[in-house]
Write a protein that binds this DNA or RNA. Structure first.
Lengths: 154, 154
DNA sequence: TCTGAAAGGGTTGATGG
DNA sequence: CCATCAACCCTTTCAGA
């Protein structure tokens, strides 16, 4: 994986903010002609620096009013249990994020759901499928102050 | 804001997975010609159903190896304090998410940083700038099992 | 609200600096 | 590694159903 130069970082910064910008326009912004600009983008896609392009939707507009975080603590810390729980969590489409964390709990899960009813259902399903020793805590988001994937490249 | 029909949801589903797809290709996938397909996309952009398009980067490739979550508890729950803390948090570019939550703490913060040194620096800065009564807990992510913004539209 | 066609502009690949 | 140019493809607009 080659090092990223100033122009590459510049391109990445712009694409993070406008994933659908035309290559000609992007090229103009970074003072290149279209060919090398397009090649840089393609190379970074190939090398996995750019993982993909996504439209971001308004959750309210698609009836996902509720954002919740779940902390899941597994007392039995065998590898088997971790793998099983992970597989369960990954199967749930409402789960947007799932991280294995150090500290006081084990999995931190972020999920978007239509409303409280769906949340209680999810929680019920989870507790049924998790090992008996697992405990969980939930945090309901009252207000989303900020949510992005933008990485500053300075 | 008009209701979204089956075709709209279909379009949104595809754009969530491939934000740079050409309109002609998108139109073919949803059995439309390009004109109405383009108009539907434009309308949903205008109405805020589609909030934007973003390239997603590989955090490791841009030297953001560390993902941390911070719980920040404000004992003094006056509106002033909340606003001040929020403004502090929003000014930090490494903060990707910030949510006001119910439950045992107040702000849940997600941040991406180069490494431990940057994390300790961030924590030091934060504690200096937050009110004296604030407490915090950190969770370092050991493994990112899943991270997406994809909303299932079924 | 759709299709189809035409004009304008973007993308891609060959060629050369 | 870059610019230019030409061929091709996509996007946008407009007429007509």
């Amino acid at each position: 994986m080659r090092e990223l130069d100033r122009t590459d970082l510049n391109i990445l910064d712009i694409l993070q903010k406008d994933g659908r910008i035309a290559i000609t326009e992007l090229a103009a912004k970074v003072n290149l002609s279209t060919t090398p600009c397009s090649e840089r983008v393609k190379r970074m896609e190939r090398e996995g620096v750019i993982e993909g392009y996504y439209a971001r939707l308004n959750p309210k507009a698609v009836k996902k009013e509720l954002l919740v975080f779940l902390e899941i603590n597994l007392s039995a810390k065998s590898g088997d249990v971790f793998d099983k729980v992970r597989r369960e969590l990954l199967q749930i489409p409402e789960v947007l994020e799932c991280h294995l964390v150090s500290g006081e709990f084990d999995y931190l899960v972020k999920a978007r759901l239509p409303e409280m009813r769906a949340y209680r259902k999810l929680l019920g399903e989870l507790l049924k499928r998790l090992p008996a020793s697992a405990t969980s805590r939930s945090y309901i988001v009252m207000e989303e102050v900020k949510e992005s994937l933008y990485l500053s490249l300075t």
